[in-house]
Design a protein around this nucleic acid. Structure first.
Lengths: 193, 193
DNA sequence: CGATATATTGAGCACATGCTCAACAAGGAA
DNA sequence: TTCCTTGTTGAGCATGTGCTCAATATATCG
């Protein structure tokens, strides 16, 4: 093997999914991008598995791009609140909606997305817990609070991206900040001071 | 025309979508169910338009089945809270998720679903407003509150149906009741007294 | 080098699916 | 009846797409 074509195929699939979404990507697109024959894809993968694997990688890549590490939990939450409804994050949430939809009828996709979902949830829960420990805010049940915050966010993002019903980005962002402040026992305007 | 085969085709499409979801239904399924030749479907419709039309009808039918009329707004809200995460409502929310997902890339579907989304939002807003007028609860901005409640609900339903992340039905129902109570300035346990 | 094993190719297959269109049927008007 | 309009049919077309498999290239070993 010249340079692990298997990895090249998986990488190509991941890139294409990030660019065009899961549903739009075909086996031939992947092999062309990877500079590889069609047969090789089927030698190393079954399409359904490759797609699920690549979708999961694409999700993680988008998450890392959108959610940056920050020094302190309150700064992390600030960044989260600021970027949660920016157009910058659209690719991530479009992908997320597509993947969760597919997961309803595709076990491979469901398995692959499981880790992402739990990962995001746990990451947010950890931030909430750390912030509570440092008395930035109150959060007696970080996991449950993280679940509620993510649920509210998911719902709003769906509205913004689909327009069903029509909601403006800044309107959604306001609703979201308000909810998070309420959830963490913070003053209404800003979640700090 | 024996008995308006056009309506028969639309009705068959609607039924099939309610039974199997949007993505699973094919033109041949519809014509077979309608007891009609394949050509007739294409004579009266383009498939994309028929599918969007039928999906919207299916949505309305599911909404009417799940959301019953009730005499007073507080009873309506009670029923809403009680049924919001019951398995009985799964077909509606599965359909909703599928339709909103399709609407992102299918203008016909987006147009057809628009009415449903606005309809649900306005219906809930009306309930909230009536309840506030009768001092069952407080709700200074019914439309905004309805939006938040639906967003939270949509997010949680997505979690429950996809398992991403895994959430139990009763757990979701509890979160939801808590959220609605908070939103309407009601005591935590029940939204009344 | 030759032989064997492994990696790789891509034309073509199998199947799915929306849609066409020449043909046919039915009802009414002349 | 004859002719025309309208409604209706379904075999077949055009296209898209995952996957096969015989052929070929490349690497490894003796």
């Amino acid at each position: 093997m010249t340079a692990d074509r298997r990895s090249a195929i998986l990488a190509a699939a991941t890139d294409l999914i990030r660019e065009n979404g899961v549903a739009a990507v075909r086996t031939r697109d992947v092999t062309t991008r990877a500079g590889v024959g069609i047969g090789l894809l089927n030698h190393y993968f079954k399409w359904g598995e490759l797609r699920a694997l690549a979708a999961a990688q694409a999700l993680w890549a988008e998450i890392e791009r959108v959610v940056p590490e920050a020094p302190a939990p309150d700064r992390q939450l600030d960044v989260f609140l600021a970027r949660a409804f920016g157009e910058d994050a659209d690719p991530l949430w479009r992908l997320w909606i597509e993947v969760t939809d597919l997961a309803m009828s595709d076990p491979d996709m469901a398995r692959a997305a499981e880790g992402c979902a739990e990962g995001i949830l746990n990451e947010l829960a950890a931030i909430l817990e750390q912030g509570a420990a440092k008395h930035y805010w109150q959060c007696p049940a970080p996991k449950a609070a993280a679940l509620r915050i993510l649920a509210f966010h998911d719902g709003l993002v769906g509205f913004v991206l689909t327009g069903l019903p029509k909601v403006e980005r800044d309107e959604a962002a306001e609703h979201f900040k308000r909810f998070v402040a309420l959830e963490l026992g913070l003053p209404q305007d800003s979640h700090k001071a």
